[in-house]
């Protein structure tokens, strides 16, 4: 388009033309997403809102849990050099640390899985790629959460 035609008022031909008047009103166009009596009550729900809120709530809790975890494992009492089977046995003898680790496992895995779901949604464009990547993600997430939970609950300090 090389030139734009304008009339004297500066309004373009489309906006300027008055096709309708009081006697000849424009037809009413139904908004495409207007809820009617036929619209089902429950539509898709608020999953994305819940996921968004979960990221923020779990994030705050994880800051406390994970930084506490890092302080204990990597900083206090000799750092990583003290860690071994005996150290794990000592920690999981207490229900407090079992609950701490269980909560951290569930929240971190769900937080991370939802984050990766967002990343896949953003970058994987072909429907098949999305399907397979998300299938792999959900499988790995469920497997890891179940394995971790099982390990915390069935830990046996006298395994040998």
């Amino acid at each position: 388009m090389s030139t734009t035609e304008t009339n004297a008022s500066g309004v373009g031909p489309v906006e300027g033309a008055s096709l309708y008047s009081v006697d000849n009103p424009a037809p009413v166009i139904e908004p495409p997403r207007k809820r009617t009596k036929k619209t089902p009550k429950s539509t898709r729900g608020n999953f994305e809102l819940a996921a968004w809120l979960f990221m923020r709530l779990s994030g705050v809790v994880l800051v406390v849990l994970v930084i506490g975890h890092l302080l204990i494992q990597l900083v206090l009492d000799g750092g990583v050099s003290k860690i071994g089977f005996a150290f794990v046995a000592g920690r999981w003898a207490s229900p407090f640390w079992q609950v701490w680790d269980l909560l951290m496992l569930w929240l971190a895995m769900l937080h991370g899985a939802n984050g990766l779901r967002t990343v896949i949604n953003d970058y994987a464009e072909r429907p098949n790629t999305r399907l397979w990547l998300k299938g792999l993600l959900y499988t790995a997430t469920v497997f890891t959460i179940l394995l971790g939970t099982l390990v915390i609950f069935t830990f046996d300090p006298n395994i040998r």
């Binding site: 071994g84 089977f85 005996a86 794990v88 496992l105 971190a108 895995m109 991370g112 899985a113 984050g115 990766l116 990343v119 790995a140 890891t144 394995l147 971790g148 099982l150 390990v151 069935t154 830990f155 046996d156 395994i159 040998r160």
Partner: peptide, 23 residues
């Protein structure tokens, strides 16, 4: 950083699960 942490977490749960194999 989020993606890196998630991949680490996966490995970390697997290595910790070895306490159920043997000390």
């Amino acid at each position: 950083t989020g993606v890196l942490i998630f991949f680490f977490l996966f490995v970390h749960v697997l290595d910790t699960a070895l306490v159920r194999v043997s000390p």
